[in-house]
């Protein structure tokens, strides 16, 4: 039970990194970055190959992954967002979808199609605290995520750069009028967003494994998290991320938690397989969208006028 809770928390922490990055770009540009899931793939493969090459734990590889992803995020904004910034939002959707395809295909070409396993953040073992056996990777995921979110928070709320970044997200025209270079700020936002997603990729590459085609699945989970929490809200995105994680960890373990239900209903196990949990999550999401388009906790989203 403790392990289950820990798994949920660590998965939720990793999804938070994804969701926060997604919402940062969303707020700064008003555009949805559909290549966000591909950042996870690229980050994961970077971490896996560096870890295998240098035989170092994830925590040491992390700075390289973060700076590499920042560069990729910045480049993506130059290629897929900047030229289309004054066009209808749909153009940016399409260009980021294409960028996602480019990133994933490039990963496939460079690293090959086989799944990779990344290095653990610290070590792969487990820790004994009293009666409970705790997975070190899960624990260090939570610590790492908290550290990165704290860093992001400090950058955004305590530095001049952060003030400018927030000014751009708040009101782009006003920021321009006050002499903030909006395009540079958006480029930096994309960079930070990609770095956070790359860190999530580093975590997932060890917790699960990573293949070049994983982008869409992560994209959808990020999106569900951002929407469930309330479109455009950072806190909501974190809440949504934990909700998605809870679904993913708890639903497949229901047959274990409730053995009597399996006895009563032979197909109970199939209804709560890991695959089924994704389907349940999506259905739950559609129900939420139907009854509460503003998200579970969030402010009202813009409906069609």
């Amino acid at each position: 039970m403790t392990q289950l809770l820990l798994n949920t928390l660590s998965l939720g922490a990793a999804y938070s990194l994804l969701a926060i990055g997604f919402v940062l770009v969303l707020n700064a540009t008003g555009a949805v970055n559909l290549a966000h899931g591909s950042f996870v793939v690229v980050g994961g493969f970077l971490a896996a190959s560096l870890g295998a090459m240098l035989k170092l734990p994830g925590a040491i590889v992390l700075p390289v992954v973060l700076s590499g992803m920042m560069l990729i995020g910045g480049l993506l904004s130059l290629a897929a967002y900047y030229p289309l910034r004054n066009r209808p939002a749909v153009s940016v959707f399409i260009s980021t979808i294409s960028m996602g395809a480019i990133l994933e295909t490039a990963t496939l070409l460079v690293f090959g199609p086989s799944p990779r396993v990344g290095p653990p953040i610290l070590s792969g073992g487990s820790l004994r605290v009293g009666d409970a056996v705790l997975n070190v990777q899960s624990l260090s995921t939570i610590v790492l995520a908290i550290a990165l979110v704290a860093l992001q928070y400090v950058i955004f709320s305590r530095t001049v750069l952060g003030k400018r970044l927030r000014a751009v997200a708040e009101d782009r025209e006003m920021a321009t009028a006050l002499g903030v270079n909006v395009n540079v700020m958006i480029l930096i936002t994309f960079g930070i967003s990609a770095a956070l997603a790359g860190a999530a990729g580093l975590i997932f590459a060890n917790t699960f494994y990573i293949t070049p085609g994983d982008g869409e699945a992560y994209m959808i989970k990020t999106y569900v998290a951002a929407t469930m929490g309330g479109w455009g809200s950072l806190r909501g995105a974190v809440a949504g991320a934990f909700l998605v994680a809870a679904f993913e960890v708890l639903v497949p373990s229901l047959p274990v938690i409730l053995p009597w239900a399996v006895g009563a209903l032979p197909s109970f196990g199939a209804l709560f397989s890991p695959t089924a949990s994704t389907i349940w999550l999506y259905l739950a999401f559609l129900v939420v969208l139907f009854f509460r388009p503003q998200g579970l906790f969030g402010e009202a989203v813009q409906q069609r006028a």
Binding site: V32, L34, A89, V90, F93, I220, Y223, T227, W231, F285, L286, L289, P293, V301, Q302, Q303, R304
Partner: peptide, 9 residues
């Protein structure tokens, strides 16, 4: 719903 919801859903 607005277009981004539609695209992602």
């Amino acid at each position: 719903l607005a277009s981004h919801y539609f695209a992602l859903a």
